[in-house]
């Protein structure tokens, strides 16, 4: 039983349960499937029955150009060396995805994290709205691409003001030629004359 036949077996399982939009083999041991939002639960159920019984991680990716969020479910099998990523795109406006707690109860905390960082709602998860990591967040969810952490940091945390410019440039040795010369000399010293 090698990994190629494992990948084919995964193909069979997924094609028999739902429609695959795009398949992307990542390596010999990893494969990603992009599926419809409505097929995710069925595919996860059948994969769990076939032995992929651990949910390694539930992540989310922001695609502002397409106006979509992408949810990534990563599954681990303890018997066969294949990681499976199930990807599903959901709308960026009022994002919502039914919870997978009935299939993988451990997804509770991943869903809370995704809600906190991306603002995705998970109906079916009883306390996805509770804060998990950040306390009293007061802006749009911070891992969205349109969130500007620098502006937030400047607004919220006072930054230190330096009255003097401590990094005074050396005007004479600033030219590119001299910099290259200095670097060359340093390399020569380091390597003992070899180029």
């Amino acid at each position: 039983m090698n990994s190629i036949s494992n990948l084919e077996a995964v193909d069979n399982i997924i094609n028999s349960t739902g429609k695959v939009i795009k398949k992307e083999p990542i390596s010999d041991f990893q494969v990603a499937y992009e599926v419809n939002k409505s097929d995710v639960h069925q595919i996860l159920t059948s994969l769990k029955l076939e032995g992929w019984k651990q949910l390694s991680y539930l992540s989310a990716v922001d695609w502002p150009e397409e106006n979509k969020f992408e949810l990534v479910y990563i599954l681990l099998n303890w018997d066969k060396p294949v990681y499976i990523q199930i990807r599903a795109k959901i709308d960026r406006e009022n994002p919502s995805m039914n919870s997978i707690i009935p299939i993988f109860p451990g997804a509770k905390y991943y869903e809370r994290e995704a809600h906190e960082f991306f603002g995705i709602a998970f109906p079916g998860n009883p306390d996805y709205k509770k804060q998990l990591i950040m306390e009293q967040w007061d802006d749009i969810p911070p891992l969205r691409k349109d969130f500007d952490p620098r502006a937030y940091s400047d607004r919220k945390y006072p930054s230190r003001e330096y009255p003097d410019n401590f990094s005074k440039k050396d005007k004479e040795n600033e030219s590119l030629e001299k910099q290259a010369k200095r670097r060359k000399r340093a390399r020569k010293l380091r390597t003992g004359g070899e180029e």
């Binding site: 802006d139 911070p142 620098r150 937030y152 940091s153 945390y157 006072p158 930054s159 230190r160």
Partner: peptide
């Protein structure tokens, strides 16, 4: 803790401890 260091533009990290 002095001025934020390499996390000076991070959203959860404070910049100056002595505030």
């Amino acid at each position: 803790p002095i001025n934020g260091g390499i996390y000076h533009d991070s959203h959860p990290v404070i910049n100056q401890l002595d505030q």
